[in-house]
Amino acid sequence: MPRLSYRKALTRALADEMARDESVFLLGEDIRVAASNVTAGLLKRFGPDRVVDTPLSEQAFTSFATGAALAGLRPVVEFQIPSLLFLVFEQIVNHAHKFPLMTGGQAEVPVTYLVPGSGSRTGWAGQHSDHPYSLFAHVGVTTVVPATPADAYGLLVSAIRHVDPVVVFAPAGAMDVRADVDFAALAPVPIGRGRVHRAGDDVTVVAVGHLVHDALAVAEELADQVSVEVFDPRTLYPFDWDGLTASVARTGRLVVVDDSNRSCGIAGEIIATVVERVRLLAPPRRVTRPDGAVLPFAPALDRAVQPGREQLTAAIQLTMKDE
């Protein structure tokens, strides 16, 4: 089977949707030359009217996309840096997200916000290494964090077709993942549907984005001690609570690994919801960035504040010891 990289999967999704639907167009900084490499080849194929380079005006072009969506187009807005989402939180939350309710259903805002390389890129330090997906889940903006090339393709396609705003986080830690993919089988992945990557009996590990790959590696390492099920929610909002509940109802134990800051991160919400629904055999655990973390520059420090495999291993073992 051919290999497909995560990055190429995103490109392919953009190209397929632009070919399928005239109303889809791209907006962003340096996307014509594809500085992030995600829009590579699209200018040549679709022309400058549909691959629109913007000045450095994130707030204006984010709301410009809202207006274009109100007028019937389907913009995909690329952000060069995950931390820029703090700059446009206003435009996404106060306007794009609120228009349908505030207008009493008169408005639809089908915009996709694509964030290639979210989270740490190693060595990019404080203002380039954030992973603010929990914030968008908190305010109720549809939020997806694909882990694999096929899911990156399928979720980006679904995001573009969705009638509400969707933020697509493509973690830096997943961008170089490659997988064997049957191109004919590439398809939209439904928003709000999780996926069990590895079945297990003793503990459910919920892993977000690139951490799915760490969770799978840890599960293999521990395979002779504990049977780990790895659940990838894929969409953080709306979350696949039924899928996760079914998994934890079988295993009885829960560990969450999430690249958010701990306070008010999605891991807290996942644990709270599961304990509202399932009587666990042991206290749940979460592996996250520390409270209020700002990623420091030096590589060892950068790694130290991100959730890692050792912490995940320890959390699983602790959960297995507790009764």
């Binding site: 410009f64 207006g67 007028a71 019937g72 206003e90 435009q91 505030m102």
Partner: peptide, 21 residues
């Protein structure tokens, strides 16, 4: 396309809407 209560926010929205139409 709405009264808008965030001061200064609507201009970009209208610009995008007119451009798109």
């Amino acid at each position: 396309l709405g009264a808008n209560a965030i001061v200064g926010a609507a201009g970009a929205i209208l610009t995008g809407a007119v451009w798109a139409r």
